[in-house]
Computed example of a mutant assay.
Amino acid sequence: MSLADAATRPHDRLRDYLAEDMEAVNALIRTRMASEHAPRIPEVTAHLVEAGGKRIRPMMTLAAARICGYAGEDHRKLAATVEFIHTATLLHDDVVDESGQRRGRPTANLLWDNKSSVLVGDYLFARSFQLMVETGSLRVLDILANASATIAEGEVLQLTAAQNLGTTEAVYAQVIRGKTAALFEAATQVGGVIAGAPEAQVTALARYGDALGMSFQIVDDLLDYGGASGAMGKNTGDDFRERKLTLPVIKAVAKAGAEERAFWSRVIEKGDQRAGDLEQALRLMQSHGTLEETRDEALRHANDAKAALAQVPEHPLRDMLSELADFVVARVS
């Protein structure tokens, strides 16, 4: 699959298929992010919302509802809800991580300030709950409220696990299930719920979202080290410089001898990073095969996502969701 060929990308095909729904969702987002009394709210929100994100999460909600035969409009409110929750977490994340760039543009906290980013994020969380309540579904409210709590829990867990070489793969999985997979899972699950789908289909959609989210985040972490084949997918080494313990590093630390462990302790725990350290980290990960092992983990979750879709009705959108799982892993082929 050529990443340069936009016509082959499943999220582009999803966008085209769901064009009418997505137009309504985007209009709803623009309306609900407005504020009569605080013009900074739409300024900050628009900076991130209009920055060219793929809108994968809201499209997953729309697709799940359509696959299950939904013919109403509440799925659009839920898609906007999911995007608001995601945007709120990004605003908060950039403050926590002291980030200066997001989607190739300066972050909101850099252009405005940390206070604005945090408070606007809070506003979007509140807006998201207003939207989900309007659907009249207590179960939808329960799912998305639980997802919001899980996201926050995952972020706090990441703080406590950061720079700790004792962090295990199980803790890492718990962190990414919170910070990424929880919202993917909720996005697809509520689509099935609002459609009144049989419980087996709702469960399958939730499993798909969880597995896709896990694969997505593992691949994202792998791309920071150039991917399994060394192909550069994003700003290589950002996670290393921020001393984040992601799966390739956790696996390398577990296989390290005394000398290698001393290296990891210096660059991750103590933050004493020198010229050539990133290259040395890459050599250690390659020598122990941890980049390839990490890709295998991502592939396993992608396959789990595709297997879950066997329980939902046949539909062109189902095929696109399956292809999306393949595409996520293809980024590090």
Rank of each mutant, 00 (worst) to 15 (best):
M132N: 07
M132F: 11
V133T: 08
V133D: 02
V133L: 06
E134T: 11
E134V: 10
T135R: 02
T135E: 04
T135Q: 03
G136Q: 07
S137L: 06
L138D: 07
L138E: 12
L138G: 09
R139W: 06
R139E: 12
L141P: 01
I143W: 02
I143R: 11
L144F: 04
A145P: 02
A145D: 02
N146H: 13
A147Q: 07
A147R: 06
A149V: 13
A149W: 13
I151F: 02
I151E: 10
A152Q: 06
E153R: 14
E155L: 07
E155S: 00
V156Q: 08
Q158C: 01
Q158A: 05
Q158F: 06
T160Y: 12
A161I: 00
A161N: 07
A161Y: 00
A161L: 01
A161K: 00
N164P: 00
N164Y: 05
L165F: 10
G166I: 05
T167C: 15
T167R: 14
T168N: 03
T168S: 15
E169V: 15
E169N: 08
E169D: 13
A170F: 09
A170Y: 10
A170W: 09
V171R: 09
V175I: 15
I176M: 10
R177N: 14
K179R: 04
T180C: 10
A181P: 04
A182C: 10
A182V: 02
F184R: 00
E185V: 03
A187N: 02
A187Y: 03
T188F: 08
T188H: 04
T188N: 10
T188A: 15
Q189Y: 02
V190N: 09
G191T: 11
G191R: 08
G192N: 07
G192R: 13
G192S: 13
G192M: 09
I194D: 08
I194V: 15
I194K: 08
I194G: 10
G196D: 09
G196L: 08
G196Q: 03
P198G: 13
P198H: 09
E199Y: 05
A200T: 13
A200V: 13
A200I: 05
Q201L: 02
V202P: 00
V202N: 01
V202F: 00
T203Q: 14
L205F: 05
A206N: 01
R207G: 06
R207T: 13
Y208P: 06
Y208M: 02
Y208C: 03
Y208L: 04
G209F: 15
D210W: 12
D210C: 11
A211N: 15
M214Q: 15
S215C: 11
S215H: 05
I218P: 09
D220I: 11
D220C: 11
L222H: 08
L222I: 10
L222Q: 02
L223Q: 01
L223N: 08
L223K: 04
G226T: 05
G226Q: 03
G226S: 04
G227T: 06
G227P: 04
G227W: 01
S229C: 11
S229E: 11
